Amino acid sequence: MTEQVQVHDPYQEAGQQHEADMMGMYLFLATELMLFGGLCIVIVIYRFLHPEEVVAASARLHLWIGAINTVVLLTSSLAVAAAVHLARRARAGPAATWLLAAVGLGLAFLGLKAQEYHAEYREGQLPILSDPPQFAGPVEQLFMNLYLFATALHAIHLTIGIALVSGLSWLLLKRRIALPQQAVRVEVCGLYWHLVDIVWVFLYPILYLAR
C-alpha cells in the first residue's frame, strides 16, 4: 500500500510522511484522554470516599441500557476498523458502507441514552432537570452530577464523531478522497471514534458497576 502513496517534501519515505500526518492527531487524543482520565479519577476517588452512598446511587442507574450501549459502541468500532482496512486497499465504496454502519450504531447509542435520561428524569434522578429531585442526600446528588456531566460530555464527543464520519462517508461515495493515497483521513477519523469508544468502556464500569 505504501508504495502507492505520493510522498511530498520534506519527506523521503511514505512511512515517515504517515507518522508525521498522525502526530497531530495523537497529540489531540492525548489531551482528550487527560480530560476524561481526570474525570474518571475524580469519580473513582469519590467512590472510595463515600462507598455506601455511591453504591446506592449507582444501583439506581439503568444497568442494562448501559450494557447494551457498550455492545453497540464496541460493534461500531469494529465497523470503523473494517472501513480503515478497506480504505488502505482503495475500496472506497465498501469503506463508506462500514462507516455508515458505524454512524447508524452511534445514532442508536444516542437514542438509547436519550431514553435513559428520560427515565431518570421521570424517576427524579437527573440533576438540574428533575423536579422535584429524589436524591437521598448530597453525596448521591453529587454522584449523579458527575454521572450527568461525564455521560453528556461523552455524548457530545460521539455526536462530533458521527458528523465527521458521515461527512467522510459522503466524500468516499463521491470519490472525492483518493485512495489509498489519502487513506490517512479515514485513519484519523477512526482514531477519534475509537477514543470515544474507549472512554465509554471506562465510564461504564465506574458509573454503572459501582454497586
Results as ranks from 00 to 15, higher is better:
Y117V: 09
I156C: 12
G161E: 08
A67H: 04
L49N: 02
W200K: 03
E120A: 06
G137L: 04
T97A: 08
V186E: 08
G111A: 03
T159K: 01
E140K: 07
Q182Y: 04
A178W: 04
E52L: 09
I206E: 02
P205Q: 12
V71K: 06
V71Q: 02
R176N: 11
A67W: 09
Y26V: 07
H157Q: 14
S166W: 08
V196H: 12
C40W: 06
V196W: 13
R211F: 07
L78Q: 04
H8W: 12
E19N: 14
R60W: 03
A82M: 13
P133I: 10
Q141E: 15
V165W: 11
P94F: 04
Y204V: 14
L86V: 05
W64Q: 10
S169F: 07
M23S: 10
T2F: 04
D21V: 03
M23L: 13
Q12S: 08
V196F: 10
G106S: 01
V103D: 01
F149T: 13
D9M: 07
T97Q: 10
A95S: 14
Y208K: 10
I198F: 14
E187Y: 11
A178R: 12
L148F: 13
S76R: 02
L33C: 07
H118V: 02
L191S: 10
A96Q: 01
A57D: 08
V44H: 02
E187K: 11
L61I: 06
N69G: 04
G37F: 08
T97M: 09
C189K: 00
L203C: 08
Q16A: 13
G15H: 10
L100S: 09
P127K: 00
D9Q: 12
S58W: 12
Q141K: 14
L172E: 08
W98L: 05
A136D: 15
Y147S: 07
A178L: 13
L209D: 03
V199I: 15
Y147H: 14
N145T: 14
F135I: 10
A81R: 11
W64C: 00
R47H: 12
P51V: 03
I206F: 05
Y147T: 02
Q4W: 08
Y11M: 03
T159H: 00
I128V: 13
L173S: 13
V188Y: 01
A14P: 06
F143G: 09
E3K: 06
L33M: 14
F143P: 00
A155Y: 03
M1F: 14
G124N: 01
L209N: 04
L105Q: 07
Q134N: 15
G167H: 11
G104E: 00
A136K: 11
Y208P: 02
H8S: 06
Q141C: 10
W193S: 04
V72A: 03
M22K: 07
A56W: 04
A79R: 01
L112A: 12
Y11K: 05
L179K: 08
V80M: 13
L203R: 12
T31P: 00
A67I: 15
A95D: 01
A178I: 14
A83W: 00
P10F: 03
M34G: 07
A101L: 10
F48R: 09
L74P: 01
V72W: 02
